[in-house]
Amino acid sequence: MIKCEFSKTYTSDKRAFTLNIQTSFKQKAINVIFGPSGAGKTSLLRLISGLDQIDEGIVKANHIYWENTSKKKRTSIAQRNIAYVFQDYGLFPNMTVLNNLKFVKKKLNQELLNDVIATLEIKHLLMTKPNELSGGQKQRVALARALVQQPDLLLLDEPLTAIDEVLRHKLQSYLITLQKKYQFTVIMVTHSLQEVLKIAHHVCVMNHGEVIDQGTTAILLSKNPDNTLKGTVLHINQTTVTVLVGVQQILVNKSQILDTDYTQGQIIRILIQNNLT
């Protein structure tokens, strides 16, 4: 478990913004921080990673204090073994895709490298430089580079926002597959409810610098009878259907929204967000 109990005030010329965080994230699971823009989601990721320092409190992972201000204890950024995919991906333009991957570690796990390259379908891009890649390709490469680091914790800052819906669904599936296989912990920031519904094992809802709710997606939705996640304006229509015949996919307006096998007689619940973002 990654336990966060801290406060941090960011001050700039124009305003001060305070985060008061009391939350925890599940190990070896996909945790999603969800909330509107300006809620403090990215700041929370930066504070967990150690790129920014908390003012007061603790960050604790696997019984090790990454931050403990009362004991003036701090684990260095490098020792935390965190991989971070930034919104701008942070790929080094002077290196080819392959060299970006090789730069991560002196001795890369070759089996993992090959697996990641195959799963994320980037083999044909290895000799290309990042400036020549499309947005979706950059995202795959950034994710690959983060994974070959074999991190204990993978932080993803809205990595899937700038790409089209079809590609986004595909990348979400990649992430689910790889997380299941390698069992690392993911904390991902998003303001897309669709992303929460599809990939989150554990959700942390933020607004105004605070965690206002947390739990599994189902629990959060059932707690709120109007089918909204607290503090957000994204409404969901919920409906329960019984599968009459076996289906492999469900399409809404030509978009595939479910892609698992469903068998006859199975009862499934469909959540339809009014405004997919």
């Binding site: 990673s49 790129l51 950024i77 490098a78 020792q79 935390r80 965190i82 991989a83 971070y84 930034f86 701008d88 991906y89 942070g90 080094f92 730069f103 991560v104 570690k105 680091q149």
Partner: peptide
Amino acid sequence: SYTETAQLMG
């Protein structure tokens, strides 16, 4: 992000 990514890699 260039510096920070590399810092996180140690």
